[in-house]
Write a protein that binds this DNA or RNA. Sequence first.
DNA 1: ATATTATATCGCAATATTACGATATTTATA
DNA 2: TATAAATATCGTAATATTGCGATATAATAT
Lengths: 111, 111
Amino acid sequence: MGITKIESYSSDVLSLSEVFKALGHPARLSIVSYLLKKGTCICGDIVDELPLAQASISRHLQALKTAGVIKGEISGTSVCYCLSNEHLETILTLIHSIKLSIPKTCCDETV
Amino acid sequence: MGITKIESYSSDVLSLSEVFKALGHPARLSIVSYLLKKGTCICGDIVDELPLAQASISRHLQALKTAGVIKGEISGTSVCYCLSNEHLETILTLIHSIKLSIPKTCCDETV
DNA sequence: ATATTATATCGCAATATTACGATATTTATA
DNA sequence: TATAAATATCGTAATATTGCGATATAATAT
């Protein structure tokens, strides 16, 4: 108990939920937000931006990378990170579908 | 340590990351997927659908409701749940922005 | 070669999440 | 009123996540 029964789900559901999970932490969402503004970052940029230790930032960057939200390129002594579009189309389709399905589905109300 | 430093983030970032977090579990994403297909559900529908105990399903439904992903209406002895659009526009905008920002931002590659 | 810089990983402690059975609550029905 | 049906909550155990300091790794510069 206490462990997610991952064996019960399709790989589609699992990989998409991993992406959402990666975005589901304020530090990681802040990193994504930073990348939206600046385009790229190195670990040290985020260390200056958030009140977390370098080790913690590095772990969050790894989590985003593992989920396919960002990718990193070694560049000298640092690693240049940028957003990846690997799962964006899937998420857009999902959210858009939800949006479209709502008017006709809700229990009592009209919206 | 070990606890998320939620006091360091804006309420915007916090509430949006809560939505992503809610979608970041395969059982909850499966519930959303079920709602997309069927429009509404009661707790028992999901109990039949997923290999989890009724108590666990109920908790997942509460988590989705707390994050504003679904809403529930009491209907006789059961509760009718359906999707909510509370945060969809924000997510769509965010994901769409990421998608648009990618071509010009990535380190070495052209995409 | 050695030092510097930037990032990643390790080990640990604190906290959060997940899941379950048991039980409580609430509404409808006999 | 008593029973049944559906959902929510409680208590607990197992596991996962978060964060930190310390350390390792890797590339550059002296």
